[in-house]
């Protein structure tokens, strides 16, 4: 144990995100945070071996049609067909290759195929709303799906979630694990949504909005949206025994 420290176990550290990048856990506008946010202060966790490593989840996690949510049933789902693509990057702009991307979403009318979702909007028997893929060598990913609808959720009077796709990514380190939501440009529901608006910094908030991408639309077939996901970047390497001081 000591020998390893003395021989200079060099560990990278990951930059902590600037204040305002992530939502405060206590966000009263989003009522469910009320009983679920910790009240004690978080304790700073140094970046050691468990934090700088993380699960590397490869192609073994994928089924054949996992990246095309319109082809998972014999018939196609209802709705506007779209291509959602982008890159998984770290905070220094470096692509994160070969990394698992998972998504889930509502159908075109805004209903999830989940037992708890029973608002009066039809379930689409041809749409599960679940996708997975792996980034390529340049960190790119791509899904074919349909544009999800907005849905009501009872958080406040006449509350509607803006259309969104849930994204889950891992990067290469425990510190980089991220679950977020991708939104669509110019959604009129942003102004009343406490989840979107829980992100304090406006620029950070806007990074969750995808960009309409005319260049990637497919004529007579599909619209396209681009959504890059940026994970934390590394600091220059430090010796572990310096970090401890």
């Amino acid at each position: 144990m000591t020998a390893l420290s003395e021989s200079g176990l060099i560990l990278p550290r990951y930059r902590r995100d600037p204040e305002g990048t992530h939502p405060p856990l206590d966000s009263p506008g989003y009522k469910s945070t009320g009983l679920r946010h910790p009240k004690q202060p978080l304790v700073l966790l140094p970046h050691k071996l468990t934090e700088i490593t993380g699960p590397l989840l490869g192609p073994g996690r994928l089924g054949e049609l996992d990246n095309d949510l319109t082809k998972q049933h014999p018939e196609e789902p209802q709705g506007q067909r779209i291509i959602v693509h982008g890159r998984l990057l770290d905070g220094d702009g470096r692509p994160v290759p070969n990394s698992l991307v998972e998504i889930w979403q509502a159908n075109a009318g805004g209903r999830y195929k989940h037992v708890w979702d029973n608002w009066p909007c039809p379930v689409d028997p041809h749409f599960d709303g679940v996708g997975r893929t792996i980034t390529d060598n340049e960190g790119r990913y791509e899904f074919t799906t349909i544009k999800p609808g907005a849905y009501p959720w009872k958080n406040h009077d006449n509350a509607w979630r803006p259309a969104h796709i849930h994204f889950s990514v891992f990067g290469t380190a425990f510190t980089q694990r991220l679950v977020t939501q991708m939104y669509f440009p110019d959604d009129p529901l942003f102004s009343q949504d406490p989840i979107f608006n829980s992100v304090p910094d406006e620029k950070a908030r806007n990074r969750m909005i995808s960009r309409f991408d005319l260049s990637r639309t497919v004529p007579e077939w599909a619209l396209a949206f681009e959504f890059d996901i940026v994970l934390r970047g590394r600091e220059a390497s430090v010796f572990e025994n310096e970090e401890d001081e």
Partner: peptide, 19 residues
């Protein structure tokens, strides 16, 4: 500049669990 975190919401069981 990192992408912000958002909640998994109530329907995470659709997308995240593995057998």
């Amino acid at each position: 500049m990192s992408t912000p975190s958002q909640t998994v919401g109530p329907y995470l069981a659709l997308g995240l669990p593995w057998a």
